[in-house]
Design a protein around this nucleic acid. Structure first.
Length: 770
DNA sequence: CGGCCCCGCGTTTTT
DNA sequence: CGCGGGGCCG
C-alpha cells in the first residue's frame, strides 16, 4: 500500500487521502485518474470502510471492470463486495430488487434501442400518424431526452414549452406517442435504457424508505466521468449522497463528448455550487503524451469558452511534432495512413497494437480496412455492428427473453414466426390491436382469447396456441436447467439450429457459428458467475448482462496484437503510442450538424481534444480533399481544427513533400482553409488526380494496388527467379508470375512455408537484392 | 402467407 | 453505397 502511494505526485496523493466529504477531482487527459480512483478506494478500505458501503459509478463497463481488477490487485478478495459498475447496470440491479414497488416484476426485461424503435414504429402506425413526419429515430430521441430530464408522459403532456417545441417541429402528437410507448413498455414488463434511470428516480421519489435504505448503505459515492452525466443521473447521485455527503466526482470538462445523449457539462461546472463545502483537486500533469501532443491539444481546447481553469503539461520528451497527411481522395488517405503505419512497423520500433486509427463516424472504417488487409496488417474494429445486434443472435436471445418474461412483446413478435410457423402479419396485427385495446401483452391477450373469437380463430388460433405451448414448455425447463443447458436446448427445440443448418451459404454457416459463439459466451458467463457468487445465475441475469454490455466492454484490447480501428467516442479512456485521427474535413469533423450551433461546435472541439490526447508518442492527422459519401463524391476543405493547433507543434514539412510526390503541379496551392486563414495545408486538386481517373460511379472492387508507396506499377519487378521476402512466410523464390486482369498472381517457393500462390494486391512481397 | 424487389433513408457519437 | 421496410405478386 505504501509502495502504492509513493508513486503518486503531490496532487494525486492529496486527492487520494482526503476521502471524506465532497470532492471534485478535475483530471486532465492522461493524468493518472484511474490510479487516483483506485488508490482512493484502496485507501478507504485500508481505513476500515467496508467495501459494500462503497458505490462507484463509471461510464463504461470496461472502466468498472478495470478498476475492480486493479483494486483487487491491492486489497485482494474484498474488492468483490464493492458496488462498482455503470449507472445502468447498478440501477438495473437495484430496480430488479425493488421492481414490485414501481409496478414491475423482478423479471422485467430491458429493451435495447432496436426494440424501442420497433415498438415506436408500431405505435406510430397504429395511431395512423404520418411516418414521414414522425420519424422513428427522431421520436425516439425526443422521448429519450424527456426521460433523461425526468419528464414523465403526464408531465410531457402538461408542459406548454414542450408542446410549443413539438409544434415547431410539426409533431403535435408527441405526447400521445410517448404515453402509448410508456404504456406498452409497462404491459410488456420492459424498460428501455432511459427507463432504468427514470424509474430509479421515481422509485426514490415515491418510496422514501427505499431511498433511505440505499443512501444509508452507500456511505461513499464515487462517480467517474462526471462531465458525462445527465440530469437523471445527477439527481440520483444527489439523492444518494444527501445522507453522508461523501461524494467524490472525477472528470474533465474538456472531455465532455456526450451531450447528444443528454449529458450536461454543467453538472461538473456547477459541482462547487451544489456542494459548497467541497474540495477541488486538479490533476494537471500528463503522464501519457509527449509535450508536443499535450501542447497541441491545449492550444486547440483553448478556443472553447467556459472551461475549468487548468494548465495541463507534460514532463516527458518534447517528442515528434504532430504529423499531417494530405490526400486527394479518401482512398488515398487510407493508403497513406496505412503506409505510414507500415513504415513504422518495419522500422521495428513498434508492434501492431501500438497503432490506432480514429474516425468521427463508423462508416469511415471500411477504406482503412481495405488498405490494412492489402498489406496483411492485422486489425480489429471496435464498435460498429455489434455481435449482439446480429439477427441470429437477437433471435435466440428473444427466445430466452420470452421464456423469462412472457409479456416481452418485442421478443414475441421477433420469434413468433421464426422459424416459419405460418403465423403471418395479419394475425399479429390483429392480436396487437386487441392487446393494445385491453392493455394486455400479446401473450396474455392470446390466453384471453376464446377459440370462437372473430379476430383470431381457426388455423391461426391453433398455430399461435402451439407457439405458446412451446415457449411454456421451455419456461418449465428454465426452472430446472442452468442457463447454458437451457440456451442450448432452446436453440435446438425452437428449430433455430435446424433452420441455420439448412442454409449452406457462407453467411449461413457464419450465422450458425455465431450462435455457437453465443452459447459458448453463455457458458463462460455462467462459469464466471458461479466462481464469483457460488451459485449459477438466473437466465434473466445473463440477459441483463448482455443488454447492458457493449461488446467493446468484453474485449481486452491489450490482449490482441492488432491495429485498432474505432470512433473517437469509443477511444475515450484508451491510449496508443501512435494515433491517426482521420477525416479532418469540414462537415465531417467538425460534423455538418455542428456548423450552426456553437455549443455543438465546442463539443466537436472537445472530441478532437480527446482524439489527440489518446496518443503517447505521435499523433498524425489526415484529411482528404474528396471523399465518397453515400456513393457520391463530396469535397470539403480541411478541418478548421487543423488551423487551431499551435503551428509550432505541427510538422508542416510533410505537406511540402507530399506536394512533390503527389501533385503533378506542385505549385498549385489554394488559398484558405475552412475560412480565410493562412493557406497552410491546402492544395487544389491537380488537373489529373492521383492514380487512375476518378472513380466510376460503382467503384471497382479494389482500387489501384498499394505496392510500395503509391506507384501505379503492378508487377513491380516481379519475375521468375526473383528472391522475395514475405512477412509471414519468410524468404523464397518466385517460380511463376501470372497477369490476371488487373491483378498479378505470383507463385513463390518459400524456404520454410513451401509453395504458395499470392496475389500482389494483398501480399506485401519485398524483393531481396541478392 | 412468403418471397422478391424497389425505394428511401442515413452518418454522428452509445448505455 | 448498404440496409431495412413496405408493397406487390405468385
Amino acid at each position: 500500500m505504501s509502495d502504492f502511494f509513493s508513486s503518486l505526485n503531490p496532487a494525486q496523493l492529496e486527492a487520494v487521502q482526503s476521502y471524506q466529504g465532497a470532492s471534485l477531482i478535475i483530471a486532465g487527459a492522461g493524468s493518472g485518474k484511474t490510479r487516483v480512483l483506485t488508490c482512493r478506494i484502496a485507501n478507504m478500505l485500508a481505513h476500515g470502510v467496508p467495501p459494500s458501503a462503497v458505490l462507484a459509478l463509471t461510464f463504461t463497463n470496461k472502466a468498472a471492470k478495470e478498476m475492480k481488477e486493479r483494486i483487487a490487485g491491492v486489497v485482494g478478495e474484498r474488492a468483490r463486495y464493492l458496488w462498482m459498475g455503470t449507472f445502468h447496470s447498478i440501477f438495473a440491479r437495484i430496480l430488479r430488487y425493488e421492481a414490485e414497488k414501481i409496478g414491475f416484476t423482478s423479471s422485467y426485461t430491458i429493451y435495447d434501442t432496436a426494440d424501442s424503435r420497433n415498438l415506436l414504429r408500431a405505435i406510430i402506425k397504429e395511431l395512423k400518424l404520418d411516418e414521414n413526419t414522425y420519424k422513428v429515430n427522431d421520436v425516439h430521441a425526443r422521448i429519450s431526452m424527456a426521460k433523461n430530464n425526468l419528464i414523465t408522459p403526464q408531465a410531457y403532456a402538461g408542459s406548454s414549452s414542450i408542446a410549443y417545441n413539438d409544434a415547431q417541429a410539426r409533431k403535435p402528437h408527441m405526447p400521445m406517442i410517448y404515453a402509448a410507448y410508456a404504456r406498452r413498455c409497462k404491459s410488456a414488463g420492459a424498460m428501455d435504457f432511459d427507463d432504468l434511470l427514470l424509474f430509479t428516480n421515481i422509485l426514490f421519489r415515491d418510496h422514501p424508505d427505499v431511498l433511505q435504505k440505499y443512501s444509508e448503505k452507500f456511505c461513499y459515492l464515487l462517480v467517474d466521468e462526471y462531465q458525462d452525466t445527465n440530469y437523471a443521473q445527477y439527481l440520483i447521485i444527489k439523492k444518494l449522497a444527501a445522507r453522508h455527503h461523501n461524494l467524490c466526482v472525477v472528470g474533465d470538462d474538456a472531455q465532455s463528448i456526450y451531450s447528444f445523449r443528454g449529458a450536461k457539462i454543467e453538472n461538473i461546472l456547477n459541482f462547487q455550487k451544489d456542494f459548497p463545502e467541497s474540495r477541488v483537486f486538479k490533476l494537471e500533469q500528463n503522464y501519457r503524451s509527449t509535450q508536443n501532443i499535450v501542447n497541441a491539444a491545449n492550444s486547440v481546447i483553448e478556443k472553447n469558452a467556459g472551461q475549468f481553469k487548468k494548465k495541463c503539461f507534460s514532463d516527458g520528451d518534447r517528442g515528434e511534432k504532430v504529423g499531417l497527411l494530405a490526400a486527394f481522395t479518401d482512398q488515398e488517405e487510407g493508403l497513406r495512413v496505412v503506409g505510414d503505419i507500415a513504415d513504422r512497423l518495419y522500422g521495428a520500433q513498434a508492434q501492431y497494437s501500438d497503432f490506432a486509427i480514429l474516425y468521427r463516424t463508423n462508416s469511415q472504417s471500411r477504406i482503412f480496412e481495405d488498405s490494412l488487409r492489402r498489406k496483411n496488417i492485422p486489425y480489429r474494429i471496435y464498435g460498429g455492428q455489434s455481435f449482439y445486434q446480429r439477427k441470429e443472435i437477437k433471435d435466440l436471445l428473444a427466445y430466452l427473453r420470452l421464456i423469462v418474461n412472457h409479456s416481452d412483446d418485442e421478443a414475441f413478435k421477433r420469434i413468433v414466426n421464426y422459424p416459419r410457423r405460418g403465423i403471418g402479419d395479419t394475425t399479429i396485427a390483429r392480436l396487437e390491436a386487441l392487446a393494445s385495446q385491453s392493455n394486455l401483452s400479446l401473450w396474455d391477450c392470446i390466453l384471453s382469447l376464446t377459440p370462437e373469437q372473430a379476430e383470431v380463430r381457426g388455423a391461426a388460433y391453433k398455430k399461435v396456441s402451439q407457439f405458446l405451448l412451446l415457449i411454456g414448455a421451455m419456461s418449465r425447463q428454465a426452472g430446472e436447467q442452468e442457463a447454458y443447458e437451457l440456451a442450448y436446448a432452446v436453440a435446438q427445440q425452437s428449430g433455430v439450429i435446424a433452420e441455420l443448418r439448412a442454409d449452406k451459404t457462407i453467411e449461413g454457416i457464419a450465422r450458425l457459428e455465431n450462435v455457437e459463439e453465443l452459447l459458448n459466451g453463455i457458458k463462460a458467463f455462467c462459469e464466471n458467475y458461479k466462481e464469483e457468487n457460488g451459485a449459477p445465475p438466473l437466465i434473466a441475469q445473463y440477459l441483463e448482462n448482455v443488454t447492458l454490455l457493449t461488446d467493446a466492454d468484453k474485449e481486452k484490447p491489450e490482449e490482441v496484437n492488432t491495429v485498432s480501428l474505432m470512433t473517437i467516442h469509443a477511444a475515450k479512456g484508451l491510449e496508443y503510442a501512435y494515433v491517426y485521427v482521420v477525416g479532418l474535413e469540414e462537415n465531417l469533423f467538425p460534423g455538418k450538424l455542428s456548423m450552426m450551433s456553437p455549443p455543438e461546435m465546442e463539443e466537436e472541439r472537445r472530441l478532437f481534444y480527446v482524439a489527440l490526447t489518446r496518443a503517447k508518442v505521435k499523433a498524425t492527422l489526415s484529411f482528404a480533399q474528396t471523399r465518397y459519401r453515400w456513393g457520391k463524391p463530396e469535397s470539403n476543405p480541411p478541418s478548421r481544427f487543423l488551423k487551431e493547433i499551435d503551428p509550432s507543434c505541427v510538422d508542416l514539412s510533410v505537406i511540402e513533400l507530399d506536394a512533390d510526390t503527389l501533385s503533378q503541379d506542385p505549385d498549385d496551392y489554394a488559398e484558405g482553409c475552412a475560412t480565410s486563414s493562412p493557406p497552410r495545408f491546402v492544395r487544389k486538386a491537380p488537373r489529373q488526380p492521383y492514380g487512375q481517373p476518378p472513380r466510376p460511379a460503382a467503384p471497382p472492387p479494389l482500387p489501384p494496388p498499394p505496392v510500395n508507396s503509391l506507384s501505379p506499377q503492378l508487377a513491380g519487378g516481379m519475375a521468375a527467379g526473383v528472391a522475395v521476402e514475405h512477412k509471414n512466410f519468410g524468404r523464397g523464390v518466385v517460380t511463376n508470375v501470372e497477369n490476371l486482369g488487373g491483378d498479378v498472381k505470383v507463385t513463390v517457393n518459400f524456404k520454410l512455408a513451401g509453395k504458395k500462390s499470392l496475389l500482389m494486391k494483398y501480399a506485401k512481397l519485398k524483393i531481396i537484392d541478392n
